[in-house]
Amino acid sequence: MTRQTRRDPGTFTAEQRTEYESLLRSRKPRPDGTIGGPFDPWLLNPEMSHRLRGLGGMLWERTSLDRGLVELAISTTGRVWEANVEWASHAPRAVEYGVPQAVMDDVYAGRRPNGTPEQVLVYDVCMAMHIDHRLSRPLYESATAAFGERGLAEIMAAIGYYVLVSMTLNAFEVEVAPGTPVPFAREP
């Protein structure tokens, strides 16, 4: 069960209400009025929510990278952080955008995937940043040769943003959507 206190949207401040209504233009609320994902915790600070959603929208819709590669980077981040909502939301999207299910199965299992060179490179870049907190010179050169400096900067922004998303989801123990399997077990 999510840790965040359930709030009636009727009790929101004017700023929270404005941000909530903005969210409703792109997301359907659950029967209890919650939005899901990191959005309910972010609504506690409506300015923060607005700014983070703007960045998220840009990263989700307007990068120079193939959408499947972005979803693979997001999913890899969700796997590293064992963020249930992140994995449950983005792993299927990676497949939808062309990443083979076998690649996603490898990522979920914690294995380096056997995918296209670009898919393996995105995975390697993500894991290097999550584990080593840096890119080796050869990995940097491979990434910039494949994606350009702009593409690499966008990968860094995507995984950084989704670390924040994953941290929010995990801190508040945000639940997956009803009927969705829970990818990572939690202790009570």
Rank of each mutant, 00 (worst) to 15 (best):
M104H: 04
E118I: 15
M48P: 07
R27F: 12
R93S: 06
H90T: 12
C126K: 04
C126M: 06
D124P: 06
V103Y: 01
H133V: 05
N84A: 07
V125F: 05
T76R: 06
V80N: 10
E118R: 07
E96L: 11
H50F: 15
E86S: 13
L52C: 04
P41L: 00
I74G: 00
V95D: 13
T34D: 02
A88L: 09
N84Q: 09
V122P: 03
R51F: 13
P92T: 09
M58F: 13
G54T: 05
V103L: 02
M127H: 12
A88G: 15
E61Q: 14
R30P: 04
P100A: 14
V107R: 01
E71P: 02
L59Y: 01
V125P: 04
T63V: 02
L59F: 04
N114W: 11
L121S: 04
G36W: 01
S136C: 13
L65R: 02
M58A: 10
R27G: 15
A94P: 05
H130N: 11
C126A: 10
S49G: 07
P117D: 14
M48Y: 08
M48L: 14
L121G: 03
E82Q: 12
A73W: 02
G37Q: 01
E47M: 13
G68E: 02
D105H: 08
M58G: 14
V103I: 06
R67Q: 14
T76W: 07
G56D: 11
H133K: 09
D40M: 06
H130L: 14
V122L: 11
D132F: 07
L72A: 00
H90D: 14
H133Q: 07
R27D: 14
R51V: 13
M48T: 10
W42H: 03
H50P: 05
A109C: 09
R134P: 08
T116P: 11
M104R: 00
P92G: 11
S64E: 03
M129P: 10
S64R: 00
Q101E: 08
W42D: 02
E82D: 12
I74H: 02
A102F: 09
S75H: 03
R111D: 07
G68I: 01
S89C: 10
K28P: 07
E86Q: 15
R79G: 09
G98T: 05
H90E: 11
V122H: 05
L121M: 08
D40W: 10
